Simulated scan of single mutants.
Amino acid sequence: MLHSTLNTNAQIPRVGLGTLDSRGDDGYNAILDAFDAGYRSFDLAYAYLNEEPMGRAFKHIIESGKAKREDLFITSKLWCNDHRPELVLPAYQRTLKNLQLDYLDLYLVHWPFAMPPDSLPISKDKDGFTPVERIPLSATWKAMEELYEKGLVKAIGVSNVTVALLYELYCGCKIIPAVNQVEMHPFCQQPKLISFCERIGVHLTAYCPLGRAAKSGDVNASNHPVLVEIGKKHKKSAAQVALRWQMQRSQNISIIPKSVRKERMIENISIFDFELTPSEMEEIAKLDENRHVIDVEALFDIPLFN
């Protein structure tokens, strides 16, 4: 497995397992299957509502002697209703308890806006809008910095943060985010964000690296004809081409494709035995339409990316 070096000097695997919608026994088995397939990086979040089965899986892997804790790179995320500075530490401790771990390798601010503490992960107020609180990202970040300074977490970062928000945070923080996790795939390539993150030493992790069906149309790298044709030349699937493309774009990018099917996990991690040509990279670059499959405005009534 290839790794990238974070600004903390920690090594993050270039390919990890996304776990959104992996719940109950499916989530538990997904961790075990992914570990057997060679994955050592696992991306979680409190809002995914699957911490307990994930924790049981990590405990089984470690107690069975298959791996030491330091062999795993485990990420989780602070949800929007815990952005008040005094809630950050309790939220982190709750996640550690659920996961049956002593520390996380990476803890991210899931979204750069705050909700009231009593709000559900996806909730609406009496007027039909997502309730928000007036808590700046910088205030939440200071509490995240305290976690790091106390040695409770190995690295801290953000998620879904634009260049403008990241620059504002960068100018005022003591500890530069180690990671910015964002949606990134052939139809939403984010070249300016990649360039800026490289300049200031922030690693990028791409979620939804294959896209998926979206309201605006089919945004699915697994069956796009351009990627299918390129895959035929290398005897690889279109999905493998899309994931390999991310690897070659920058050493500063890791990916977290999600699946609960072991055969798909194996396919997604089997992308280090071929290389795309410069002309193939250019052909894929032409697919960019800045199309997000995560409709933030529909979910939260906040046009974050507009």
Rank of each mutant, 00 (worst) to 15 (best):
V109C: 06
L276G: 05
A57H: 12
A206R: 09
P131I: 13
A143T: 00
R23E: 11
S41V: 02
A285M: 12
A91H: 12
D36Y: 10
F274I: 02
A178D: 04
D33E: 11
P85A: 06
E183Q: 07
F73C: 02
I12K: 06
L137P: 04
I31H: 00
K233D: 11
G172A: 04
T5H: 08
S270A: 15
R244T: 11
Q246S: 14
E51Y: 02
E52P: 03
Y28G: 06
S259C: 10
M54H: 14
T140I: 10
I31R: 02
H185D: 07
W141E: 02
P278L: 11
N268G: 08
V161I: 14
G16C: 03
G18F: 08
K124G: 05
K236W: 04
A47T: 15
L210E: 03
Q251T: 15
F42P: 01
S76R: 01
I266G: 03
F35Y: 15
A67W: 14
G38P: 06
R23H: 13
R261Q: 14
G65F: 13
E146V: 14
L78N: 03
K77S: 04
K192M: 12
K97C: 01
E146Q: 15
L152F: 05
M247F: 09
E229A: 12
N290V: 13
I294S: 09
H292C: 09
R84Q: 14
P13F: 00
T205H: 10
